[in-house]
Computed example of a mutant assay.
Amino acid sequence: METRRPDIADAAIRVIARDGLRGLTHRAVDRELAIAIGSTSYYARTRRDLVELVVRRLSERTAGEVTRSSAPLPRTSAGLAKALAAVTEQVVAREADSRARLALAVDLVDEPDLHSLMTDGAPVRELLLSGARAGLEALGVDRPDEHALDLVTILDGLVYHRLAGPGVRGARADAERMLTAYLTGLPRAG
């Protein structure tokens, strides 16, 4: 039954978020779903197949969430910073997905095709970059194409800070303040 694949991927995401990529086994997913041992291997024969299933599921879900956003773009640095800080909080709130994504991005560096699906080749990546470009254009930033990647990278760093960096247990960076400073400092067209 094809509807089982998303359930398996979701369970595998939870396993990775809780136990790390080393904890991801077919048996661990079977246990997570409370299904017969060996069931997961019917849908994902190898561990690589299982990882690919997770990578594609994460990409699918993230792209779906990004495309649902249709709020008008703020026209001030402070307004855009506030909106981006809120997006960062939404990503952090999806803790299992975000932790699994971080673990996979690190562990898959030596597997270019899967790593690309988590990073620069992810379908959601162009959506993020085009959203960043649009936000920067709304501010009147000079050369928004050049600054869009920087902005997305800053957002990635803020998510890392909260989920795996010092923000997990220590003082948290003020995302809105940082983003406002960055956006305010960008050169304006004109």
Rank of each mutant, 00 (worst) to 15 (best):
E2Y: 04
T3V: 09
T3N: 05
R4H: 13
R5T: 10
P6C: 09
D7A: 12
I8N: 02
A9W: 01
A9I: 04
D10H: 15
I13F: 03
V15H: 09
V15R: 12
A17E: 14
R18F: 06
G23Y: 06
G23W: 12
G23K: 03
L24Y: 01
T25H: 05
T25I: 13
T25R: 05
R27A: 07
R27P: 03
A28G: 07
A28T: 13
D30T: 11
R31W: 03
R31M: 05
I35K: 10
G38L: 12
G38F: 07
S41K: 11
A44C: 12
R45I: 05
L50G: 06
V51I: 15
V51K: 00
V51A: 06
L53N: 07
R56C: 04
L58S: 08
S59Y: 03
E60P: 08
T67Q: 14
P72Q: 03
L73T: 15
L73Y: 13
L73C: 03
G79H: 06
G79D: 09
A81W: 02
K82L: 14
L84E: 08
A85Q: 11
A86W: 04
V87R: 15
E89I: 02
Q90I: 04
Q90V: 03
V91D: 13
V91E: 12
R94C: 07
R94Y: 07
R94K: 08
E95N: 03
A96D: 15
A100L: 09
A103N: 03
L104Y: 10
A105R: 10
A105Q: 09
D107T: 04
D107L: 08
V109G: 02
D110C: 10
E111K: 08
E111Y: 06
P112M: 13
P112A: 09
D113F: 08
L114M: 13
L114N: 07
S116G: 14
L117V: 02
M118E: 02
M118A: 11
T119I: 12
D120Y: 03
G121W: 04
A122G: 05
A122K: 01
V124E: 10
L128Q: 15
L129K: 14
A132Y: 00
R133Y: 01
R133I: 00
G135N: 06
L136Q: 04
E137W: 00
L139N: 03
L139S: 02
G140I: 12
G140H: 10
D142A: 08
D145E: 06
V152Q: 05
V152C: 07
L155K: 01
G157H: 02
H161F: 05
R162L: 00
L163N: 01
P166H: 11
V168D: 05
A171Y: 05
R172W: 01
M178I: 12
M178T: 01
A181C: 06
A181I: 15
Y182I: 01
T184H: 09
L186C: 14
R188I: 13
A189N: 06
G190F: 14
